[in-house]
Design a binder for these strands. Structure first.
Lengths: 235, 235
DNA sequence: AACTTGACACGAACGCTGTTCGTTTCTAGA
DNA sequence: TCTAGAAACGAACAGCGTTCGTGTCAAGTT
């Protein structure tokens, strides 16, 4: 079976798993590729995940990967699919639907944050991946059980998933830039606070006055705030 | 003056403009670089904006660009800065603050959409760029005039700006993938609808049942919905 | 008027990327 | 035992961002 056939098969309802013949002493499997890739991302970040780096970690050359994966984009999809597969979706409970929905978002966020920068792959992914669809199906179940209109539910889910990915991407970018010693990037919160307060007060009256609020809060605080904002807007 | 000095100068309050001596018949200026880059993005997309492609459009070699720009990241920042500079910010009016805020978001979205994929640069940008700060200052003014607490206002602005960028990024990715004839990517709305309805109903009961709602709405409808969702959540 | 200075332009190269071609290797089924 | 064919892989290609060393030419100084 071709690797490209495998990809299209992943987007069909029933991807039949099957044991294949093996050649090597430790023949490479797609699972191995995905797991190794996640390991690289976890320790070195998504930018370090190149086909060469990955193939080296698997003790082979770049060309060998293309027997298991169509593209880097395809690999990205596999990675996100693996992350989505890890999420446990709650049984919809109309009494606690807000907390349930927030819980799913936070679980997804935690998965993303565990693999810095991987959310970039999520943002570029096809909307028909089965594991990703499983997550949105679960979120849809929660919202419908809560009595939200299907149209509003669908759009809210998209908005939430988009925000989660974007939020994690922003965090990973900030983290990478900060530790690379970028001059332009503020080193820490006090640095950013200082830059905002020293802006010309004439052109930036509110920014300078409320610099404290602008720089306040942990990333989790901001995430929690925004998710609540969107969920509250539903009612 | 070095290009790196110029960059740090752009992050300081008062970037003094100055006429410089010229060498070439048509010496390259930063303005020229930025405008040419925007032209390339507008017609060929952000992915086509490489240092080589840009330098070729300016009738020179890649190395020449680095006299005016520190990095590609620096160029990205200039591009987003230019876009932000084009936005006209309204005088805060407590009576229509929701519409005003939505208007700013839509104007920013339209700028992003005019240059497909450029929002990727926005997501990776330093939060201290002067033109970008001008925009958030304007949004902050609207929210504060409306009586929103500074802390909530600040976080809401970040959430909105993040969503606008992410939304446009998602649109550009979808557009590029669709016109590249990607097999995995749904060609159009009916294609996506068909894929969702043919999912196994046992595992995806809600997705299959409400596939129509899931695929309904223009991108602008979804954008409008989400922005309203966040703004309404404020009250 | 000749000279020094230094910013800008630029050709060539480096190390890296994703991807492909052609070949070799080795197992599963006939 | 033999063969078909999938997997593995070495080598290469075109392209990327970036840097180095050098060339060039106008402005300011002597």
């Amino acid at each position: 079976m071709n690797a490209k056939e495998r990809r299209t098969a992943r987007h069909r309802p029933a991807p039949a798993e099957e044991t294949r013949p093996r050649r090597r002493r430790d023949p490479i499997t797609v699972d191995q590729v995905v797991e190794t890739a996640l390991g690289i991302i976890a320790t070195e970040g998504y930018d370090a995940l190149t086909m060469r780096r990955l193939s080296a970690a698997l003790d082979t050359g770049p060309a060998s990967l293309y027997a298991h994966v169509v593209n880097k984009a395809d690999l990205d999809e596999l990675l996100i699919g693996r992350l989505c597969a890890r999420l446990t979706l709650p049984d919809p409970d109309p009494a606690t639907w807000r907390d349930q929905l927030r819980g799913v978002c936070e679980a997804l966020r935690d998965q993303y944050l565990q693999y810095p920068g991987i959310s970039r792959a999520a943002l570029a992914m096809a909307p028909t991946d089965l594991e990703a669809l499983r997550v949105s199906e679960g979120m849809l179940a929660i919202l419908l059980a809560a009595g939200i209109a299907p149209q509003r539910a669908a759009w809210t889910i998209d908005a939430l998933l988009l925000y989660v990915a974007a939020h994690c991407l922003e965090l990973s970018v900030a983290h990478r830039r900060a530790e690379d010693g970028d001059e332009v990037w503020p080193a820490d919160r006090t640095d950013l606070l200082h830059r905002l307060t020293t802006l010309p007060a004439a052109a930036f009256p509110h920014t300078t006055r409320h610099a404290a609020e602008l720089t306040a809060g942990t990333p989790h605080d901001r995430f929690d705030f925004t998710v609540r904002l969107m969920i509250n807007g539903l009612a």
